[in-house]
Design a protein around this nucleic acid. Structure first.
Lengths: 186, 186
DNA sequence: TACGCTCATGTCAGGTACTGACATCACCGT
DNA sequence: ACGGTGATGTCAGTACCTGACATGAGCGTA
């Protein structure tokens, strides 16, 4: 007799996304999510710091892809390094994940609280990239600008990627957006 | 006999900033803020949508300065238009406000929840600028990129402006940061 | 086998943020 | 004098989140 079914965390995430999509973030209580997953509210809060966080778990791997891309880059041009980071991060968004990403983003776009959390995560990413760029010898301001620019390109690219009818791969879109930004500031 | 003292909203804001600075955002209850202002918790929530919002009131005027700058700009170059918006917005941060801005930012930097709210506000600003740029005839992607870039320059500039020992005016710093970004992407 | 430790989960009590409904009553115009 | 307005108060209730303690299957070890 097993005392608990495995994968509690994953069950909670799946239950949460399903309920949020069905009745909205505000229309769902943590107790409901937990019950759907066969657990209690208290256990939910052991796995996730707060109700919003259930949609943002696994952000660490995402961030480390960016950092790996920075470390793998050659040369000193900040934008080239950021481009390498973007190429690396694109691996986190294969074609199979596109419709799932769309659904998740739809939930986030419907709730300001979730948008806040997403922005905080992206801000953290920007900070981590800034640090990584400084470790490569860039001065603080260029490092911050390059990192913020990288995140901007990511966001614009991501929005494009999950737009209805868009068929290019994520990495192709990222390259196009970066080229567009270069042209803009040339 | 007056039933209520005027300026309830301002008293709440002052009380909140004072308490947050003294014992932190989490260490302060809304009931305490209200009591300090001679009001009740319920009244606090009539003036501010939530506990965090008390630090972000008046953001509308700030945003409209950006939009006025966009409307006042001449020519079609997106970055030139954004530069005009930044020049206009700088008026919101005269020298007298520098140390107050520093104190407020110190409170925000100490609490992730407040950082989230700040990011959401900046995101809203970016969206409003994007719309304004599109109304001037820019295509969506260049408009979004230019707006995001403008906000990035603002953020980097603001951080610089409130740094200890910094003496340049805000507008001078903004010009320098924008020039630096141009050089980076040239 | 028996013992004891670990650790994910459950249970319970409580604090705080936030909301809806209704009451109050100075002020203001008529 | 009188009725409407509107900012505030009061009260009850829900949901988020936390700390403290209990439970018991699984596992290592004697």
């Amino acid at each position: 007799m097993v005392r608990w079914k495995p994968g509690a965390r994953e069950r909670l995430q799946a239950a949460a996304l399903e309920r949020f999509a069905a009745v909205g973030f505000d229309g769902t209580t943590v107790a409901e999510i937990a019950a759907t997953a066969g657990l209690t509210e208290r256990t939910f809060f052991r796995h996730f710091g707060d109700k919003r966080e259930v949609l943002f778990a696994g952000q660490d791997e995402f961030e480390s892809l960016f950092l790996q891309g920075i470390e793998a880059a050659t040369g000193d041009d900040p934008i080239a390094i950021v481009a390498s980071a973007l190429e690396s991060a694109a691996a986190f968004f294969p074609e199979e994940r596109r419709s799932w990403s769309r659904a998740r983003q739809h939930v986030i776009d419907a709730d300001p609280g979730l948008q806040e959390r997403e922005l905080l995560k992206l801000s953290g990413l920007s900070g981590a990239m800034t640090d990584a760029l400084q470790r490569r010898g860039l001065d603080p301001t260029p490092a911050a600008l390059a990192a913020e620019t990288g995140v901007t390109v990511f966001r614009v690219g991501f929005t494009t990627w999950i737009a209805e009818g868009e068929e290019r791969t994520f990495v192709a879109i990222l390259r196009a957006v970066l080229a567009e930004l270069r042209a803009l500031l040339a």
